[in-house]
Every structure is written in structure tokens, then in C-alpha cells.
Nucleic acid binder design. Structure first.
Lengths: 236, 236
DNA sequence: GAACGACATTATGTATACATTCATCCAGCT
DNA sequence: AGCTGGATGAATGTATACATAATGTCGTTC
């Protein structure tokens, strides 16, 4: 399974073994599709499942709600947000806007060294694609985006917004890249990003990144549709 | 004092008398400048202050952190984010991007009735400006923006992001409008927004809204600077 | 038979007690 | 004298017990 999901690597803040455990547990369960869409998530049941008390469960639920994986349900706990196409679409649109803006900021101050680093990731992804090693393509594409994200660490809000959304979106992206065509389009987009960065124009960078993420949205869109079809078929 | 701040009106979710009480208490204290910038906010001291236990205090702190009013401090509690110019600038830049995008979305589907409603608010703000009634200008300008925000209620993430940031930004805006020039520029911006909406072009709407909020940023910038000067002067 | 109401069950809000970890300070050593 | 290391304290993480609110069920009544 996807290591970026099953291995909840060290984040910066939020310091608690138990709370972290529950957080990872629920997140993984959601990504694995273990909850029915819209299913209610109660503090007590989760506390029993994970073997901790309700207090860390509450904290984890609150965190997940901020990240958008679950939604507050009126007055009675939370529920799994489900993969509605609308949600997915909004998420990618937001990413397009925010990461587009971010790339515009980056364009103003990126260094030659960073450009080289990005080119390195891109070259590796291309090589991996030539070998049909999708896993590797995914890895280097992620490195590429992560390197870009790091460049706006001096804008804490923007940075954390983008980080959160990228975390959330992994589920779609991995599946998307399983299609060779998606991998090709993605790498092509990264090429265009490099060119835009070398042009140094914020406006062009913004537009290129928007288009890139909207392409990814289209791929994810089809993937989700097919998943829904599959689920429909597998229902007795 | 600002009614939008001192009167924590009914929000949608988050159901708790005690938790709500603490939330309002801290928020008000922050807006009133009762905490030194960067001051550490401990759960225990806040619990004593407000007379409730630490549990609702935790929930309130978590909420405030999500909204960006306080920042998680490494591993040890939270602290008042302070009014650094950088933070303020980032906040307005984000608003510019997100509300710009939102207005682009709105442009595609706004109805004649809504346009009329917006025009009504705008006209009232103009009249208030003619009377030099800044309080009223503020009120109708807020109605104007709120009406726009409501139009993207079908994009929950975008909507809540914008709502949160607008809440947070109230402190700057009120002071800003105390300057007549700021009020004039603000109303002028709203006029341009109306024209862009009537043109119906998403791109133009996006650009106009961005410019409008960046103007507000400039006003807020000067205001914060003057406040800092004042504080420097009042320090023995 | 359907609807209303009371009770039981369950879930969340709150409080408090306990555990753990971080920070500070003082003492002893180099 | 300065630095290091441990002890002490305080603040957060966790668990649990209690209070309150909501839901679901069962019984009664019309």
C-alpha cells in the first residue's frame, strides 16, 4: 500500500503518542475505505477500537476535521466525508488556485541551485517513466512538488494549507498515476513548470501551475468515476 | 467596540456553553490587545481565568489555532500570534487570491436579484459615506462582502477558508475604515466589483477582487505601522 | 393501528485525577 | 568561573468519572 499513507511520518507539531496513534488509525481506515461513506464516527467506538481514552480521540477527530477528511455532523460527532465528486473537484480547484499563487511567489526568488534540483527530480521521473516504473515516477513527482512547497515555508498559512490539501489528495493521485497516460501528463506539466520558472514570470507560473493541477483533476475525476462503477458492480 | 467582535454571534457548529464561553473570552482578549504579542497561553491559567476546566479550554484553543488567531508553540501550548506585518500581509494576500477566485466562480452564476441586492448595500454605504457615518459604511461594506461570501456556500472548503480569514481580519479593517480615505477606496472597489460582475467575466472578476483586497491590505499596512509607532511611544 | 410520551441507552460535554514530559535552577565537577 | 547533570516544578497528555442532552424503543392511549 502507499507508504505515504500507511506510514504517518513525523510531522512538526502535535505531540502525543496516543493521539498520533488514533489519528493514524482513523486516517488509514478512511484511506483504506474501511468506513462506509457518510458513516458516523463516534468517540467511544473509536476509543474502544484503538484502545485509548476518548480524550486523544477527540483531538484526533478535531484534527481530521480541520484537514477536511471528516465533517462535523450537526451536534452529534463527525462522519466520514465520503468521496463525492464535488468535494474532489473543489479540492483540486483550491489546490490549483493556491499552488498557482505559490508558484508565482516562488518565481520571484528561486535560485539557480533550486532550479537544478527540480530538474534532477524531473529527469529521474522521466527515466522512471521510460522504464514503466510508475512507483518511481510517483516518488520523484512527489519530490518535485515537495521541493516547490518547501520554497514557501516563509508563508506559514499558505504553506500549511497546501500541505494539508496535498496530504488529503494523495489517495486520488496514486491511483491516477497507475495510468501511464496520467504519469505522462504529469511529467509534461512539470516540464512546463520548469520552463515557466526559468521565464521568471509570476503570472505565467501561476497559470501553468493551475493548468497542471487541473489536468491532475481530470485524471482523478475519471479514476473516481471508475471506482464508483466498480463499487456499484460489486454490490450484490 | 466592534459589535462583530464583542458579540460572538451564533455560528453553525460547535455546541458547548462552556467551550463557547472560553472561545469568546480568549478571542475578545486577543482583539482587545490584552495579551502581549507572543505571550504564551497556558491551558491552566485560562481555565482559572474563565472558571471552567481545561477540557473546554483545549477545545477552544484548538479552534482558535485553526482560525489562525493563535499559533501552536512547538510542543508547549500556544501563543498569541501577534500582529507582525508579515502575517498581516500573508493573510491579505491569501484573501486576495481566494476571494478573487471565489468572485470568478460567482460571476458565472449570479442572478439579477443578487446583483440588485449588492447594489442596494453599495448605495447605502455611499449614502453613509456622504454623511461621514463611518460606522454605517463599515456595516454595509460588511454586508456586501457577506452577501458575496454566501454565494459560494456550495463550496464548503473555500467558503470556510474565506469566512475564517474575514473573521480574523476584522481587527485591521475596522481601524482602516476610520480613515475616510480607506472608506472611499473600499467603496470604489465595490463599484468596480459590481461592474466586473455585470460584465460576467470570471477573469476580470478575479483580477478586480484581487486588486480590491490588496488596496485594503495597503490601508491595513499603514494602520498597523501607526499602531506600532504609538505603542513604541507609550512605552516608558 | 397509529401516535404520543416516558424511560432506557448511548454519546457527548465537562471536570478532575493521574502520568509524562519539558523546563528551569541549583549544585557539583572540571 | 563556566559548564554539565540531576532534581524539582509546572504544564501538557491521558484516563476516567460524572452530568447532560439526544435518540431509540417500548408501552400506553386514543
Amino acid at each position: 500500500m502507499n507508504p505515504a499513507i500507511t506510514n504517518p511520518e513525523g510531522e512538526k507539531k502535535h505531540r502525543s503518542p496516543a493521539g498520533e496513534k488514533v489519528y493514524g488509525h482513523i486516517k488509514q481506515a478512511i484511506f483504506a475505505g474501511r468506513y462506509k461513506p457518510g458513516e458516523r464516527l463516534g468517540e467511544e467506538s473509536l476509543a474502544r477500537e484503538t484502545g485509548v481514552s476518548r480524550t486523544p480521540v477527540r483531538s484526533a477527530l478535531s484534527r481530521l476535521a480541520t484537514e477536511g477528511l471528516i465533517k462535523p455532523l450537526g451536534k452529534r460527532g463527525y462522519c466520514h466525508a465520503g468521496d463525492s465528486l464535488e468535494e474532489m473537484e473543489e479540492l483540486f480547484e483550491l489546490r490549483a488556485v493556491l499552488e498557482g499563487f505559490a508558484l508565482g511567489l516562488v518565481a520571484r526568488k528561486i535560485s539557480k541551485e533550486t532550479l537544478k534540483e527540480l530538474n534532477r527530480y524531473l529527469a529521474r521521473a522521466k527515466k522512471a517513466l521510460a522504464r514503466n516504473d510508475i512507483e518511481e515516477v510517483f516518488k520523484w513527482n512527489t519530490e518535485f512538488h515537495d521541493a516547490l512547497t518547501k520554497l514557501i515555508a516563509d508563508r506559514p498559512r499558505l504553506h500549511s494549507l497546501i500541505s494539508d490539501m496535498r496530504k488529503y489528495v494523495l489517495r486520488y493521485r496514486k491511483d491516477t498515476l497507475l495510468y501511464l497516460k496520467g504519469a505522462e501528463r504529469s511529467i509534461d506539466g512539470h516540464c512546463r513548470i520548469m520552463h515557466a520558472l526559468m521565464l521568471g514570470s509570476p503570472d505565467i507560473c501561476e497559470k501553468v501551475m493551475r493548468d497542471h493541477i487541473r489536468e491532475a483533476k481530470e485524471d482523478a475525476y475519471h479514476t473516481v468515476l471508475e471506482q464508483k462503477e466498480l463499487m456499484k458492480g460489486s454490490q450484490k
